[in-house]
Design a protein around this nucleic acid. Sequence first.
DNA 1: GTGAAAGCGCTAACAG
DNA 2: CTGTTAGCGCTTTCAC
Lengths: 360, 360
Amino acid sequence: MAATMHDVARVAGVSVKTVSNVINDYPYVRATTRERVLLAIAELEYRPNLSARGLRSGKTGVIGLAIPELRQNYFAELADAVIRAAERRNVAVLVDQTGATREGEMAVLSGDRLRLTDGLLFSPEQLGQEDVGLLQVPFPLVLLGERIFGGPTDHVTMHNVGSARAATEHLIEIGRRRIAVIGAHPTHPDDIRSANLRVRGYREALDAAGIPYDPALVRVAAPWHRENGAAAMRDLLADGFEFDAVFTFNDTLGLGALRTLGQAGIRVPEDVAVIGLDNIDEARFSVPSMSSVDPGRDQIAEVAVDLLIERINEKGDPAPPRQILADYRVAARESTGFVDPVPALATAVSPSVLADQGPA
Amino acid sequence: MAATMHDVARVAGVSVKTVSNVINDYPYVRATTRERVLLAIAELEYRPNLSARGLRSGKTGVIGLAIPELRQNYFAELADAVIRAAERRNVAVLVDQTGATREGEMAVLSGDRLRLTDGLLFSPEQLGQEDVGLLQVPFPLVLLGERIFGGPTDHVTMHNVGSARAATEHLIEIGRRRIAVIGAHPTHPDDIRSANLRVRGYREALDAAGIPYDPALVRVAAPWHRENGAAAMRDLLADGFEFDAVFTFNDTLGLGALRTLGQAGIRVPEDVAVIGLDNIDEARFSVPSMSSVDPGRDQIAEVAVDLLIERINEKGDPAPPRQILADYRVAARESTGFVDPVPALATAVSPSVLADQGPA
DNA sequence: GTGAAAGCGCTAACAG
DNA sequence: CTGTTAGCGCTTTCAC
């Protein structure tokens, strides 16, 4: 049987209260007493029972992270960043996969799958703006991603319009004019999900450069998987190959498009420049290496964990929901004619806080 | 304040024991009573407090998974499989990253980072055979990977020798004779870690086919990252290019090697056939797609979770440690001259061209 | 500075 | 079949 606090107290010749004080860094403990207690702890290899602590304090020190699937690179890297951020704050992370299904995402919000967690970071992939009401849950929740805006919870997300505009501007800067896009969704024009936000950023860049918008260059691809990037590129080529650059709405689509271009014998970046968005690790290792926009994933993880912990510890009336947009930057690589930079490092954290709740 | 069992009992007009019985599917509860309790639970939106349950029962229903880094594809896919397997058994998974450091791995074993978990799945990357003693820990532990063998705990691992032999045999079957290897480690010949096991499988296949072993074709690369696969391939080419196939000890090395071959203008598979090991998702999407040996990751996850749960629930003297080897199979793709199996895709591409989105 | 004692919400004897 | 009750190990008033 593992040692309990009472055992420690007995061995150290003090009361359990004193042991508790030592463990919880209560300042008013005489140094010699503290020493004796620590000795007893070491001797007995005592470890606090976290279930008991959780029961007593109402907090477990664990947060949940609900994502579609770890095998999608983007989410693996997000989970990595979240776990690191949480660890720095002495919090553990329980990872839940929704399987990218609507039922999975609803189950997470119902709280049935919440296990021993104080709150949840949630990155939906199926739920959309029309489900915003489901975010009204009886536990601390921080929303990630670009599926829903203006909900009742804190929300940390990349800057969709800005990073799409940056990607497009990068292609324009290297002299491209016929810039295709892969990853649009066939949705209502006023829908604010990320595909449309990225189309908006793309058009803003075109407008600013005085380049006319050609709907024939904007291709649908959903979901944003490699197969669909490859297929969309095949379509683009079949339709007459009248473009000199492609902006794919994520890196996975871009890697698929690169594959098709390679098979078709089209040179990248000479004939077609390619840029993605997400800056997943893999983009550095394709042939050619792929330029991308880094949407500030590490920063998103840091901020999201901070906000969630803040909400968990919040007392009294909850503060109004906040939306945080991460900083972004272009990572230029071979696919847009740059030599690979030294590996990118974590950027400083200076999130832009949006006053209103409008979409990014 | 959230509802407790007592609230439910009061509303349903029964005792807490009955509520507990209903929740825990105790069979001997009258149907009408059960109905009344379920109604009260729904009405109050009651959720059991898992800290209390954990304290009482000594089990939390959570297991830990300690891996080097989620951003390594292999581990993301492993974690994915583990979480799925655990979910089927109604267990949650807390993911811990050791950062591929010795300190991180030791910290995990010390139990200091164990939080609310009933046991641990541990995949070391730094600890080696000499650290086998550290695996003697006071909590249920199941070892994964190929760093340590013969330890005091259950161990689930791929079949290193067998899958390396299968990879080599595959190359021999398509007519290759000068088969290089990338990924050997500069260790003692009697060391049993996976690099050596894979060299052994390679040699077994050569011997069986009557092909002489040429040490000049066996290249060191460590760690098994893309950069090192690319570098080893550059070395091989620089040394005279006297090989017609390469077996890389994991897929990541293989993708690096592919990159070098592509840059050097060497045709795959015509000039050089390539096969990896791990069968990560990414292997299906390189150019050309890369053959690999599937080491049975899903099976490893299933079995590992089963063994761990079994150990957690074990009473009395522990059974002796077991070692389980997973089944493996070759996934033949373009890099060894096979056409890809049709990729499973879920495309929603009716209008390939997006309708105009209105003014920007 | 430290001790005594209550009780967090649940499960599992045990009694009926 | 169902109710009563005693803790699980910890934190936290409240005394001293």
